[in-house]
Structures are given as C-alpha cells and as structure tokens.
Amino acid sequence: MSPSRYKGDLVAGALLVNESWKIARLMVGGLEKNELMEKVIRDNLLQKRSPSSTKRQASLIVNRLMTLPKPFWSMISDGSHDQATQALFCAAIKYSPILGDFVSTVVAGNMRVFKKELTHAQWDSYFEERAAIDPTLDSWSESTRGKVRQISFLILSQAGVIDSTRARNILPFHLLPTIRFMLIEHSEEYILSCLEVFE
C-alpha cells in the first residue's frame, strides 16, 4: 500500500502564529532542525507544560515551514501579523492536504452556490469520500477524526476564511498581494489551486 498523503498530526495545533514566529526566527537564523528542536525543548520556548507537548507542537511547526521556500520563513518572522497568518495558512494547506482538499472542494462548492455555512456534516461526508479513495484514513480513531475536523475549522477561522468555529459562515477572503506573488514566484501550484476560489 502506498503512503497516505493525509497526515493526522494536524491535531497538534492550528495556525500557532506566535509559536511559529519564534521557530521561524530560529530557522531564518540558520539553525538546523536537530539544533532547533533541542533549543526549543531546552528553553521551553513555546511555554508548554511538558517537553513532550513542546516537541509535538514544534515538530508540526517545523515540518509545516519546511514545505515552503525560505522567503516564507522570513515573511513569518519579520512580516506583518496578516502576512505571517496567511503564510502559515499556506503552510498548513501544503503540509496537510486533508485541509487543502477540503478548501478546494467543499468550501469552493459552497461558494459556487452561494451557501455561506460550512457544516460538520459536510466535513464528515468529505472525510468519508476521502477514505474511500485513501483507505489508510479508516485507521484514524474517532477521536483523531473529530480533532482533525475541529482544528481544520479553527485554522479556517484564524485565517479569516470563516467567521467562527461555531457559526462557520464563509467570509470574503483576499490573499495578500505579497503572498500571492511569492506563491507564483515559487510555483506553489497546489496552494494556489486551493485558494483560487477566493479570487
């Protein structure tokens, strides 16, 4: 069986803007992954209650950021809050296609028929459709499935795609010109295809 393109480690956190800013600064500074992880855990830079929580969240952030070219790291560490948020949204989409594919199919579908609300039932139906294509998703526990759904809606809320995790109404979302330019310049076709519905 080929490896799944879908990862369940999304459960470790949503956009994590403040935490990602700290890690992006270290990555821009040239620290290698092992050195970075050691420093983050030793100094408890993410201010978590246990080293295991720090390691899990830091690993997610590093893995997300490493899917994007280095200029995005600088955007996260030195750009505005809105630029950092959108760059992290792009990283989450690329690293976790379970989120990206939801945006490009379900969110896009709602927008085409002018349906504002995203429902839990839509996510569950989407997940079952994906599981039919990728049977490895069947191995996810119910708690993991629920947490991935929860975090995915939280990411959409933090990115400004929906108004809240409770109402889940789709908002007018505009990709910042700086982010769009970088995505085009670095040929980030998957991310662009997920976000083209907002154009």
Rank of each mutant, 00 (worst) to 15 (best):
E19N: 05
D82M: 10
L31D: 04
E185P: 02
A91M: 01
M75H: 00
W73L: 01
P177A: 12
S2R: 13
S141F: 02
I76P: 00
L195V: 09
G109N: 09
E188W: 01
N63T: 10
E128H: 07
I170Q: 15
S50E: 11
H186M: 05
I170M: 15
Y126W: 10
H81V: 13
M37G: 07
S59A: 13
W140A: 05
N18H: 12
A167H: 15
E38T: 09
V11M: 03
R5K: 08
G146P: 02
K48Q: 13
S77Q: 06
S4V: 08
E185S: 08
K39M: 14
P97K: 05
L15T: 00
M37F: 09
K7L: 07
R149T: 04
R130T: 01
R166K: 15
S187Q: 14
M1H: 07
M75Y: 01
G13C: 03
S143V: 07
A14P: 03
L65H: 02
K147R: 11
R5Y: 01
P135R: 03
I162N: 04
D82W: 07
T165M: 13
A108M: 08
F127L: 05
F153S: 04
L46N: 03
H120D: 10
Q158T: 13
I93G: 00
K116D: 12
S157M: 15
G13W: 02
F89E: 04
R5H: 02
L192C: 07
P3N: 06
L156S: 05
I133D: 11
L60P: 02
T105S: 14
R49E: 12
A121R: 14
F127W: 03
M27C: 04
V103N: 01
L15K: 02
R130V: 04
T105D: 12
A121F: 09
Q122I: 02
S152N: 07
I162K: 04
T144N: 07
N34K: 09
F127R: 01
W140H: 06
A87Q: 02
G30N: 03
D101F: 02
S139I: 08
D134S: 07
E35K: 11
F102D: 00
V62L: 10
A121N: 13
Q150V: 05
H81L: 15
W123P: 01
L60N: 10
E189C: 14
P177Y: 10
D163N: 14
E128S: 11
E189R: 15
Y95Q: 13
W140Q: 08
R180I: 06
S193M: 09
I191V: 15
S52Q: 15
I184Y: 11
A159C: 11
S2T: 12
G29T: 06
